[in-house]
Simulated assay, not measured.
Amino acid sequence: MPTDRVPVVFIHGLWLHSSSWRPWVDLFESLGFDAVAPCWPGEANTVESARRQPEAAAGFGIDAVTEHFAQIIRSYDTAPVIVGHSFGGLFTQKLLGMGLGRAGVAIDPAQMKGVKPLPFAQLRSGFPVLGNPANKKKAVSLTAEQFHYGFGNALSQAESDQLFEKWAIPSPGRPLFEAAFANFSKNSPAAVDTANTTRGPLLLISGRQDHTVPDVVTRASYKQYGGSSAVTELKQFADRGHSLTVDSGWRGVADHVLEWLARQGVQPRIGSAG
């Protein structure tokens, strides 16, 4: 996919539609990046359609979704920046470890193999899926209350409900089961090549009030990169929950990402100075 601008591929996680990245895409585009936010495999193009067709997204696991985005990234002539939230953050790390992407940003990334902390808040957030083994083959929806606990706990009930109505969709249960049992599986799809020294720079971001991926989990993921000389940095946002990419404070997170990319020498246009 030829372009004279630096591409950016945004990857969402469970229970948010790809269009939830629209403010980020618009911002990055306005600054000269070539930004896209593709759907997961089986995901309909609109929130309304995704809600009407939950079965279309059922059954896709970590490997299938990773390969889906790997094909998109390989289609570019210029290696894209990869920015992912939640499970999108896990895919970002897997793709970067595979040598794909110019740089990666993993925001509240889902738990990779090797990460040991499992806080109660994380278990409670995942219970709507993990509480029923049959959900591994299904696409599961959250209620507004479950969304408020897992995503919007740092927000007012009203703002959380607005985000739920605007962006929430059913999502496949398989990735959550695969991540939850990663440390009991020798060949877990949730494994990441954290020792890769030739990969692009990686920024991990944590919301310190996050229930779905608590700060301790992101910090444990960061420590997994201790054996790599590649650039790996951690940024923690106090008083922010799992909704930090879509709530009213999203711009502060986006601005930090842009500043970090600039420090890594990633400019909006190839060869440009700004």
Rank of each mutant, 00 (worst) to 15 (best):
F164I: 03
F164Y: 09
E165H: 09
E165R: 10
E165M: 10
K166D: 11
W167I: 13
W167R: 05
W167D: 14
A168S: 15
A168K: 12
A168G: 13
A168Q: 10
P170Y: 03
P170N: 06
P170M: 00
S171M: 06
S171N: 13
S171K: 08
P172H: 15
P172E: 15
G173C: 05
P175L: 07
L176D: 04
F177I: 08
F177N: 10
F177T: 05
E178G: 09
A180C: 12
A180M: 13
A180N: 13
F181A: 06
F181Q: 08
F181H: 05
F181T: 11
N183K: 10
S185W: 07
S185R: 09
K186C: 10
K186S: 14
N187H: 15
N187G: 12
N187K: 15
N187Y: 14
N187A: 14
N187D: 12
N187C: 10
N187I: 11
S188L: 00
S188M: 01
A190S: 13
D193V: 06
D193E: 08
D193P: 09
T194K: 04
T194I: 02
A195H: 10
N196F: 07
N196L: 05
T197K: 10
T198F: 06
T198G: 06
T198Q: 09
R199S: 05
G200H: 00
G200Q: 03
G200K: 02
P201K: 00
P201A: 01
P201V: 00
L202Q: 05
L202N: 03
L202A: 05
L202Y: 03
L203N: 01
L203V: 01
L204S: 03
I205D: 04
G207S: 11
G207R: 06
R208F: 05
Q209P: 07
D210Q: 02
D210F: 00
H211P: 09
T212C: 14
T212L: 15
T212I: 11
T212Q: 15
T212H: 12
V213W: 01
V213K: 08
V213C: 14
V213S: 07
V213R: 06
P214M: 08
V217R: 04
V217N: 06
T218K: 00
T218S: 03
